[in-house]
Design a protein around this nucleic acid. Structure first.
Lengths: 200, 200
DNA sequence: GCGAAAGTGGCAGTTGACTGCCACTATAGG
DNA sequence: CCTATAGTGGCAGTCAACTGCCACTTTCGC
């Protein structure tokens, strides 16, 4: 496993333990639901003491958030590079498609996470907060490209719409086979978005 | 107050108590946040014993959900009545505008609720679940009008987009002055939606 | 090697949501 | 009036997230 070469035997072990906790949580919760699994259960499944769980994660939720992909975090920089001749929507689509490869490896993880998600309001809430953050980030990037300091209504609305659209694609993709081409799916769905808003 | 004429002195009192609990919860939580307020606090503020709280509401969250508007619940029937010559998006917009008056009276409540919402993942999650439900309902109605049994990708996507758009309007409206014309705001934002997706 | 520090287990304790139970009061309805 | 019952307070108790503390073991740097 050519992972990040954590030198010392110590930090290697802690990384292992952390990973074990994450995996255990994901496995248990995706099957039985977030609320049905206690932190003690997770610790037991990972082979550590209950107390140790909280040495790695400050809260129960945080174990599922560990290593969260930041697909959107790098949106702004990629978006800026899009040729100015493109319409906003096309530039966004191109950016999303370009970013797609960064999460194709997370198929299993996203799938399990989504399964766990269905079972708990806490998780859904956490996810929703994340979603909001993404909308804000995208809105900022959109505004920037148009030379605005702060996003206006148009930027915020478009951001809301494209992030929601992206979300539908990623969810569908995660629910389906891992080999599906996420970039293509995104492109298709954005075409559908235009068609459906245009109507007729 | 020409409210529902609860006859007996008993049920009148229970209704009062329930209302007091809801109001207390809303007031306290919108200021200090959901997590900072315990059910005991709410009970105290409402002038009842802690035990009594759970006689009215099964969980802490449920006190904020009481009397949830079902703006969207009646979407399907109103949507069906829209003339078939309208494009889907126009029909949806018209339906939303027609439904707007049903929530104009809830301005204060929605505002407080939204304030409380920001403070808690549980609440956000609850809200997100509600949102999902709305999307599903709208998607079903959209599909129905096109003669489909089950919503297809197009119906689901449009539903996602219009509900998200509606959400932005309602939130902006709730954050602003109560006298603003919600119907007009909805119509405007849907126009903006088209413009922003069309681009250029 | 050896002492400092990291990582761990275990345990007792806090907090807040939520429940069961019982006794008390007030109203409903004959 | 008078009794069945709805609504209430209070109390004890469960459950799970989360914390502080201390003792123990392992690794790291020298």
């Amino acid at each position: 496993m050519p992972e990040a070469p954590t030198r010392s035997r110590r930090s290697e072990r802690t990384a292992q333990t952390r990973q074990a906790l994450v995996e255990a949580a994901l496995a248990l919760m995706s099957r039985q639901g977030y609320d049905a699994i206690s932190t003690d259960d997770i610790a037991a499944a990972a082979g550590v003491s209950p107390r140790t769980f909280f040495r790695y994660f400050p809260t129960k939720e945080s174990v599922l958030l560990f290593g969260e992909d930041d697909f959107i975090r790098s949106f702004a920089e990629h978006y800026r590079e899009q040729p100015t001749r493109l319409r906003e929507l096309d530039a966004v689509r191109a950016t999303f498609v370009a970013l797609a490869p960064t999460i194709t490896g997370l198929h299993r993880r996203i799938r399990l996470y989504n399964q766990a998600l269905a079972s708990s309001f806490v998780l859904r809430g956490q996810e929703q907060a994340h979603h909001d953050e993404n909308v804000t980030r995208v809105a900022g990037a959109l505004a920037g490209r148009r030379g605005l300091r702060k996003p206006d209504d148009a930027a915020r609305l478009l951001a809301t719409v494209v992030v929601a659209t992206l979300q539908t694609v990623v969810n569908d993709w995660a629910a389906g086979p891992a080999r599906a081409d996420l970039g293509q799916l995104i492109a298709d769905r954005f075409a559908l978005l235009e068609a459906v808003v245009r109507g007729r």
